[in-house]
Simulated assay, not measured.
Amino acid sequence: MKQFVIHAAVLVAAMFVGGCQRSEAPVLFHPQGQPQTLGEWHVLSSDGKQLKLNHGVEPYALNSALFSDYAHKLRTIWMPEGRKAKYSANDAFDFPVGTIISKTFYYPRGQDGAVLRVAEQKDESANGLDLSKVRLIETRLLVRRETGWVALPYVWNEEQTEATLARAGDVVPLTMHKPDGSAKTSFAYMVPDENQCAGCHSTNNTTRELHPIGPKARHLNRDDPWHDGQNQLARMVSLGRLEGLPATGVPHNARFDDASASIESRARAYLDVNCGHCHSQVGPADTSGLWLDAGTDEARRLGLCKPPVAAGQGTGDHLFDIVPGKPDESILIYRMSSLDPGAMMPEVGRATVHEEGVAVVRDWIAAWLGNCTSDGAHVAMR
């Protein structure tokens, strides 16, 4: 089979005051191989001063996002011209061959080389990133080829001009603190290797095929942060990028940090995006019996008075995944709060504890009523 490439658009010339300037080269889809630099894809470009999105590369945001050591993320999708993703109510959308999904991890800059622990701002990645204000760490690509999805991690250089393929992963030492100088911590940010990328994105333990995690209806069903008054999914339809979107009944996850939403919806949304791709009926942790995806409603499967499948270090000597009203006695909180490699959950992707996320799940468990008997039965309060 002959190799082929897909271009976002032909090169054009644009006239400016004072002269003529050539546009950015179009997005280049590589149907095979592992390009050694991010620049070879032409999805994002950097001159060391600004990270820019190429023509046709659209940013997107999630309702609640996967925690990654407080890193901010610029997420983008590019699809070949004239091709559309197919809507699914529950699973990741079916994207056409040639799709390139990118996720760039970065931090706002602090003082003396440190990075800041602050909430993501809705407008900071509308047209790219001002590199005088942020430090780029890595960009991960998820690429849809004829044979399926492949994951490629790229690590940015100190000049922030290019990112290089890091098949074996990488370690980036960081010091992070809040804007007022508090909560200062030094940690090793871990860039996952190819196998770890595949481990998270192999959301079906039978097929072991890679799939996107974030681009699902319930995560994308929200206002577009960069286009006032537009829903992200409706915008995808208007741009000719999505087909099959129903007029009503589109699922929606809460923002875990939205104080106006119920504590249950916030905690379930957090667990869904952080844990549900693994802890589901078909995921890699299916044998654990603990299913934390959005489609699970059975309290026992969510962990209520459920003993662990395997005892030991990961339990912290606790008896049940969730003890109603007692988060400190629940294995779920213990593992979310741990930094012990033998106990922490998720197992990869973090070297710090997400205090705000743990607090939401803690409050959710604290609101549960009843007691667990010694044999794992739940006794409701009367």
Score class of each variant (00 low, 15 high):
residue 1 M to S: 14
residue 18 G to M: 05
residue 21 Q to F: 10
residue 23 S to L: 12
residue 24 E to N: 11
residue 34 Q to A: 15
residue 39 G to S: 13
residue 41 W to Q: 01
residue 44 L to V: 07
residue 45 S to K: 09
residue 48 G to V: 09
residue 62 L to H: 00
residue 64 S to K: 07
residue 67 F to H: 07
residue 70 Y to R: 01
residue 71 A to C: 08
residue 71 A to L: 07
residue 77 I to S: 04
residue 80 P to M: 03
residue 85 A to S: 13
residue 86 K to E: 05
residue 88 S to G: 06
residue 91 D to F: 12
residue 92 A to M: 01
residue 95 F to Q: 05
residue 96 P to C: 14
residue 102 S to Y: 04
residue 105 F to I: 02
residue 105 F to H: 05
residue 107 Y to D: 00
residue 114 A to C: 15
residue 115 V to L: 12
residue 118 V to L: 07
residue 119 A to Q: 06
residue 122 K to E: 06
residue 122 K to F: 12
residue 126 A to D: 06
residue 126 A to L: 07
residue 132 S to T: 07
residue 139 T to E: 03
residue 140 R to M: 11
residue 146 E to W: 08
residue 148 G to N: 08
residue 151 A to L: 09
residue 152 L to E: 02
residue 159 E to A: 15
residue 163 A to D: 02
residue 166 A to K: 11
residue 166 A to R: 07
residue 167 R to A: 15
residue 167 R to L: 14
residue 167 R to P: 14
residue 167 R to K: 14
residue 172 V to R: 02
residue 183 A to K: 11
residue 188 A to M: 15
residue 192 P to L: 10
residue 199 G to E: 10
residue 201 H to A: 06
residue 203 T to E: 06
residue 209 E to I: 10
residue 211 H to F: 10
residue 216 K to A: 11
residue 219 H to A: 15
residue 219 H to W: 11
residue 221 N to V: 13
residue 227 H to V: 08
residue 228 D to Q: 09
residue 231 N to R: 06
residue 235 R to N: 12
residue 238 S to W: 00
residue 238 S to P: 02
residue 243 E to V: 14
residue 246 P to I: 06
residue 247 A to D: 13
residue 248 T to M: 12
residue 252 H to L: 11
residue 261 A to G: 10
residue 263 I to W: 09
residue 264 E to M: 14
residue 267 A to G: 10
residue 268 R to Q: 04
residue 268 R to P: 00
residue 269 A to G: 09
residue 270 Y to S: 08
residue 279 H to F: 10
residue 281 Q to Y: 13
residue 283 G to P: 02
residue 293 D to S: 13
residue 300 R to M: 04
residue 303 G to W: 04
residue 305 C to M: 07
residue 308 P to F: 06
residue 309 V to P: 00
residue 310 A to Q: 07
residue 311 A to P: 02
residue 315 T to Y: 05
residue 316 G to P: 03
residue 317 D to I: 08
residue 319 L to S: 13
residue 324 P to T: 00
residue 326 K to Y: 03
residue 326 K to W: 03
residue 326 K to Q: 09
residue 328 D to E: 11
residue 331 I to S: 02
residue 334 Y to T: 00
residue 335 R to V: 02
residue 336 M to Y: 03
residue 338 S to K: 03
residue 338 S to G: 14
residue 339 L to I: 10
residue 341 P to C: 11
residue 345 M to K: 00
residue 354 H to M: 02
residue 356 E to Q: 15
residue 357 G to F: 04
residue 358 V to M: 14
residue 362 R to T: 13
residue 369 L to I: 01
residue 370 G to E: 09
residue 371 N to P: 05
residue 377 A to I: 09
residue 380 A to S: 14
